[in-house]
Amino acid sequence: RDLHTGTDAAKLMSLLMLVFSVSPILAPLTGSVIIENFGWRAVFWTVTGGAVLATILLATSLKETQPVEARAGSSFGTALSAYRFLMGDRNFLGLASIGGFGIASFFVYLSSSSFILIDHYGLSPSVYSVFFSINAVAFIGMSQLTGVLSERFGLRPVVRLAVVGYATTMVVLFAVMASGVDRLDVMAALLFVGYGFLGLVIPTTSVLAMEEHGAIAGTASALMGTLHFAIGAVAMGIAGVFFDGTPLPMVAGITLCAVISFTLAKLTLGRGREVVEAPAE
């Protein structure tokens, strides 16, 4: 946010999604290989090694993006003031929540899909890893169009189109599954399309949420990330209560998250926006 805004930020956010989303593709496949060859404990050693590497990169390679003259002092009091301001900004909270419920739908899938695909549909762990990666490919592929579409149509129209497509696809999936059609190929196809639309929702809402908060970009980013994962954690917990080994509760949870994202988008993007000056961070 210090260096880029608007469509430029959207293009870079799509690149970030490309890098960040490699993990859902590689992680299940890598985990399967590690477990098969070295046992389940090796997964934790691998994660620990990744954390150590990330810490080293953080200390040696992550440079400050603000010039010295533009940096503001930070204290516990100023942080609280910035959080209070953001919690009162309905536009920021709405955009962060749109993305949050989008991510939550993926968390619901993440928490239930292994049991459903392996136990209910009979896939092997290795095949499940490939199946899981397919949805990540849809997400990544569509997210790469964020910059192009935003430059041509604007960020807000892209969000509106994406949430409509996402919610519609998930509602169709729920209706099909609720009618008694319990087919893996049908579920896979509709999830692929739905998560493709989700690939447009996350980067655009993130850019829009940060757009007016350059003075408190660090606090805004922290709060947005917290909201994303908090909403996702709550959604996983609720989905777990209703889990019965069949796909329908999982699909219902994903659909509910998609519909909430759509509703929040209608409420957040459908009204005028008054820009309020934020407190310095």
Rank of each mutant, 00 (worst) to 15 (best):
E212G: 10
P247Q: 07
G240R: 08
F197C: 04
L248N: 11
L198F: 06
A215G: 13
T219F: 10
T246E: 13
A209T: 00
H213Y: 10
G253W: 05
P203M: 08
G214H: 12
M250F: 06
M210K: 10
T204V: 05
L248F: 12
A252H: 10
A252E: 10
P203V: 08
A239L: 02
F242R: 13
C257R: 01
G214Y: 10
T246L: 07
M250C: 07
C257I: 03
M210R: 09
I216N: 13
L198T: 00
G218C: 12
A235F: 03
G218E: 13
V234D: 01
A220V: 11
V234P: 00
G214M: 12
A215E: 15
D244P: 14
L227Y: 01
G218W: 14
M210A: 15
T226F: 11
E212L: 09
F243Y: 15
V193R: 04
G245P: 13
L248S: 12
F242V: 14
A230C: 01
T246Q: 11
M210F: 11
L198C: 05
A220R: 11
G245V: 12
L208N: 02
G225V: 01
H213M: 11
E211C: 01
H228E: 06
A258K: 03
H213F: 13
T226N: 08
L223I: 14
A215P: 13
G214E: 15
V193Y: 02
G214K: 15
V234W: 03
I216F: 11
E212C: 07
F243S: 15
I238L: 06
E212F: 10
V193W: 03
S206D: 04
A215V: 14
F243R: 13
M250S: 07
V241C: 10
L198Y: 06
V201Q: 02
L227M: 09
G214S: 15
I254D: 02
H228Q: 12
I216L: 15
T246C: 09
V193I: 05
G199K: 06
A222M: 10
Y195L: 07
V207F: 08
I238T: 05
A233C: 00
I202S: 08
A235N: 05
V251L: 07
F242A: 15
E211Y: 00
L223V: 14
T219E: 12
G232S: 06
A258Q: 02
L200D: 03
P247Y: 03
F242D: 14
G240S: 08
L256K: 07
E211S: 04
L200T: 02
G199N: 08
G232M: 00
T255L: 07
M236C: 01
I216W: 10
T204L: 02
A239W: 02
F243L: 11
G225M: 05
A220T: 11
L256V: 15
T226G: 15
L198W: 02
F243G: 10
A235S: 07
V251C: 07
A258G: 01
F229A: 00
P249H: 10
P203C: 09
A209D: 01
A252F: 11
I202N: 15
L227D: 01
L198N: 06
M210W: 09
